[in-house]
């Protein structure tokens, strides 16, 4: 009994340990080469940022945002085009934020006010945003050379300001979910939407807040990704939404909202990072990576179900 209680409490850490050991053995220790450990964080910064935003969205009642990957591409494309035409990096980043906020307002209005299913709204949004991004890019890959932008978000110039942005995203999500009054409302809405509405919580505002937050974090993620790779190409961010959603569910966020902690999401993102990294060291093709991510996503959700059921039975 004590073992089971321990397992239940620390299953995330155990899963993390098991996956790490598995990939360490499978890659014959290559996973722990210093370069790989560094990449483990650097290449997956976007997962932490997007997962933080996605976490808040899911908390409001199982609402998701499938469009964030396409939005990363669109923001990158806009910023790339702006900087190509002589605007400086800060202006470009402001434009990214503006796009993120606009997308957030539209999604939030349709989902919160019109009460449309988030999956359909963001799926349609994904298609629209991807279309606009591809039109802007015109099939080319833009390279980003702006000094200011690369200093802020890049790694090649020797500045590491980008970590501040990652840290800001995570801390903002922690603050909202743990301390802010609005966080309590978010949890209440996700736990029991009807009860929350009856007790005077403004659902439209809360959902819009969550999606605008998601939009802002998407902008940061876009800047971070573009800054690291110094390029923007068509097809950027195609699996990002899946990574973020999987990280949230691995981290124990309830699929119907209202339950979950930011600490779990960070571990989930770390786990996703190790899986990503391990698979690319093993040389698995993108296709097999997709298969494994899909299976991991469903397994994570299922394990959440079994753990919560066991908990209920013990009571």
């Amino acid at each position: 009994m004590r073992i089971r209680a321990f397992m239940k409490k620390n299953y995330l850490l155990i899963a993390l340990l098991l996956v790490t050991v598995f990939f360490a053995v499978a890659t014959k220790g290559k996973l722990f080469y210093s370069g790989n450990v560094k990449n483990l964080f650097l290449q997956n910064m976007y997962v932490y940022i997007l997962a933080s935003g996605m976490f808040i969205c899911i908390l409001t009642g199982g609402n998701t945002d499938l469009s964030c990957g396409s939005a990363v591409c669109l923001m990158g494309a806009v910023a790339g085009r702006l900087m190509e035409n002589g605007f400086n990096g800060v202006t470009a980043f402001m434009a990214m934020l503006l796009i993120g906020i606009m997308i957030g307002i539209i999604h939030g209005y349709l989902i919160g006010k019109m009460e449309l299913p988030s999956i359909i709204v963001t799926l349609a949004g994904m298609s629209i945003i991807r279309g606009i991004a591809n039109l802007l890019l015109g099939g080319y890959t833009l390279s980003i050379t702006d000094e200011v932008f690369l200093r802020l978000f890049g790694l090649s110039k020797g500045y590491y300001a980008v970590f501040l942005f990652v840290l800001f995203s995570i801390m903002a999500a922690v603050y909202i979910s743990e301390f802010a009054p609005v966080g309590k409302h978010i949890y209440a809405l996700g736990g029991n939407g009807e009860a929350a509405k009856t007790s005077g919580i403004n659902k439209t505002f809360i959902v819009m807040f969550a999606y605008i937050f998601m939009g802002i974090l998407t902008a940061i993620a876009a800047a971070v990704v573009c800054g690291r790779t110094e390029t923007v190409g068509p097809g950027l961010g195609e699996t990002y939404a899946m990574d973020a959603i999987a990280a949230c569910f691995i981290g124990g966020t309830s699929v119907s909202g209202g339950k979950g902690r930011m600490s779990g999401v960070i571990i989930g993102a770390l786990l996703m990072g190790i899986i990503n990294q391990g698979m690319s060291i093993l040389g698995l093709s993108v296709n097999w990576q997709g298969v494994i991510k899909g299976v991991v996503l469903v397994m994570a959700v299922l394990s959440g179900y079994f753990l919560s059921r066991k908990g209920r039975k013990q009571k």
Binding site: M242, V286, N287, Q289, V291, L297
Partner: peptide, 10 residues
């Protein structure tokens, strides 16, 4: 969504 990822890859 899991199926969406997995079957395209497979």
């Amino acid at each position: 969504l899991g199926g969406y990822l997995a079957f395209r890859g497979l």
